[in-house]
Computed example of a mutant assay.
Amino acid sequence: MTASPSNLPSRSPALSQEDQEVLDALNIRATPANTLRAYERDLLYVAAWKAARFGKALDWPEREEIALTFLLDHARDLKDAPLDDTARRTAEALIAQGLRKSLACPAPSTLDRRIASWLTFHQMKNLASPFDAPQVKQARARARRAAARPPTPKSQHPITRDVLEQLLATCQDSQRDCRDRALLMLGWASGGRRRSELTGLMREDVSLKDFDKSGVAWITLQDTKTTPKEETPRLVLKGRAAQALVHWIEVAEIDEGPLFRPVSKSDRVLTRRLSPDAVAQIVKRRLKLAGLPEGFASPHGLRSGFLTQAALDGAPIQAAMRLSRHRSMAQVQKYYDDVDIAENPATDLLG
């Protein structure tokens, strides 16, 4: 991790420096790169909040009253708070640093994530959690209820098969078109891949041993949010999607290294890895070329679109989950429920 050493908890006195370094390295190796980056961002936010609020660095373990104040400061909307309100002044300082967007009450999920990251650093050092104190736990539960809001979808619309076809129709024969076609089709047909999973793929993660015989490509996901490294999933890509992927590999002459790469303005394939943000730009550009409204869908629409289409086509939910790699059936069930209620004959009783 690259967080500032002054923000990190001190080493456990029960461990030698060598053992502590081994433990730190183990924690880092066992944690996905995206999660590590989220930990660092959240720790930076919490440290900046305490510095602005109290003029002090983080303590390890942190005191209960500090944790309680953090909860209270983030449990209300500060837009209408008096100008001299301490929580408001702290929030304005964080906005000035680019660490907070507005004075509005943060979403419960954002608050929960920052607290979870804070707790993770306590757990790494075997320190007591300030959020386990009864008063703090009660305040956290009440803050969550007070700030509850209807869940918003990560993508405004799912990219179902018909929408995907519109995006693919904008891809012609340039290197960029070949890449975008392969990325969109792999991202959708392999189960609705996350951005980090797409950009984390290496050429070595793609096996074409069965492609000539059966038109099948095998994909090994090394970097996934929900799967332990010892359970690296192997996914199958068939038909047009497999053909698009092989075509991209051939025209880009990718023998090793990152599978999806930037393409220069002169249509030259670069050697570095495509960034997750670039995937969002690819989806945005293809939506625009397809004549769809701006903001119609985000990259997560590939994931939600795959599951929605699986429900529309009557694919068993367990089969869809084997590809999407969801751990919770309840998360996937909502896509099936949305389709079921729309197709329910009782909704047509009035004609």
Rank of each mutant, 00 (worst) to 15 (best):
L287R: 13
L289A: 15
G305H: 05
R286V: 08
K288M: 10
V283C: 12
G301V: 10
L287A: 09
A311S: 09
T308C: 01
R303S: 08
K288N: 13
V283P: 06
L287T: 09
G305S: 12
Q309D: 12
F296K: 10
D313H: 01
S298P: 08
G295M: 05
G291E: 12
A297R: 06
P299C: 04
A310Y: 07
S298V: 09
L312C: 05
G305K: 03
L302W: 06
A310P: 07
D313N: 14
A297C: 09
L292K: 10
L289I: 02
E294P: 07
G301L: 03
R285M: 13
G295F: 02
A290F: 11
S298E: 07
S298F: 04
L312W: 00
G301P: 02
L292G: 11
L289H: 12
S304C: 05
P299E: 01
R285V: 06
T308P: 00
L312F: 02
P299S: 03
F296Q: 08
L287K: 09
R286H: 09
L302A: 07
G305N: 05
F306Q: 02
R285L: 14
A311R: 05
L302S: 09
G305A: 02
F306D: 04
T308E: 00
E294G: 13
Q309P: 07
L292D: 11
P299L: 00
A290M: 10
R286G: 07
Q309K: 09
F306T: 04
A310L: 05
S298G: 13
T308D: 02
V283E: 13
P299F: 00
R303A: 05
S304V: 06
L302D: 01
R303H: 05
R286L: 09
K288S: 14
A310I: 10
L287G: 12
L289D: 15
S298I: 08
P293Y: 00
R303Q: 11
G301D: 04
L307S: 01
